[in-house]
Every structure is written in structure tokens, then in C-alpha cells.
Simulated scan of single mutants.
Amino acid sequence: MHCSVSNTLYSYTCGNINDLEPVSVLSDEQVLVLTELQMEAEQDARLSEMLDRQQSGTLSEGDHSELQTLMQVYQEGLLRKATALSEASRQTWVDSTLKLVSKIH
């Protein structure tokens, strides 16, 4: 499995988040794409189903591994999205500060 971000669907599939480039080196456009990151619809639906089954106590032993993998994909995507949001905010703050400083001088 590999990590990818689709620019059109903002979908996320990941096997190891460490394989991705740091958000701080991405272009502004790439960072903005990451701020809209979401699990693929099929993965999201499967995760919801597995969590419901876990809640009701009907999750089989074999399903635990799949649930763990889906939770990892979800958590890594959420971390990547949060990092992108932080970077976008930082870039906006830096740009705003630079514009303000240039007006003062």
C-alpha cells in the first residue's frame, strides 16, 4: 500500500505516513489540497461499519486487524490534515505580517 493525495478528490490512502514529504516543503497549493483531506468514501463507510460492529460486540477476531488498519489510515490522514491546516495558518500569518511590516517601512 502507498500514500497518495488526489488533487481532485482529496482522498487519502496510506501505508506509512513517514513516506510523505513534510508539509513545510510543499507548495501553497499542495498545502491547501491537504487541508481538505478525507478518507476515501469506501474506506470511511467500512470504518463506520467496523466501529458499529465493535460497539455491538459482533466484530470477529479477523476483523480486528482490518479495523486497526483503517483506524491507522484515519489517524494518519487526520494528522496530515491538521499539520496542513497549521502550515496554512502559519503561512497566512507570515504573509500578513510581512505585508504589515512593508506598509510600516
Rank of each mutant, 00 (worst) to 15 (best):
S86G: 14
M39F: 00
A82K: 08
V33T: 02
V94D: 08
V31N: 00
L70E: 02
R53Q: 10
V25F: 07
S60I: 06
S102A: 11
Y74H: 09
D63Y: 02
E76A: 04
G15F: 01
S24G: 06
L67P: 00
V73P: 00
L67Q: 02
H2L: 15
L98I: 10
K103M: 15
L47C: 01
S4T: 14
M1K: 07
G15M: 04
L47Y: 02
S65L: 13
Q75H: 12
S96H: 07
L59S: 03
L20F: 03
D19Y: 09
V31W: 00
S65D: 14
L85M: 11
S65N: 15
G15V: 03
N16S: 08
W93H: 15
A82Y: 05
R46N: 03
N7W: 14
P22Y: 04
A41L: 11
K103N: 15
L100A: 15
L100W: 15
V23R: 00
Q68M: 12
S27N: 02
E40Y: 05
L85K: 03
Q55R: 14
Q30T: 03
S89M: 09
E42C: 09
S6R: 04
S60V: 05
Q54D: 11
Y12P: 00
A84D: 02
Q54K: 12
E42W: 10
E66D: 09
V5Q: 01
T83H: 14
K99V: 11
L100I: 14
V23N: 00
L98T: 10
T13V: 11
L34E: 02
V101F: 10
H64F: 14
L34K: 02
D63H: 04
Q43Y: 08
Q55E: 15
V25H: 06
S6G: 10
M50H: 05
S27Q: 03
A45K: 10
A45F: 09
S96N: 10
Y74T: 04
L100G: 15
Q68T: 13
R53K: 10
D44Y: 05
L51F: 06
T35D: 01
G57K: 04
Q43V: 07
L47N: 01
S86P: 14
M71S: 10
S89A: 11
Q75V: 10
Q72V: 08
E21V: 11
D44I: 04
Q91S: 03
D28I: 05
E61I: 11
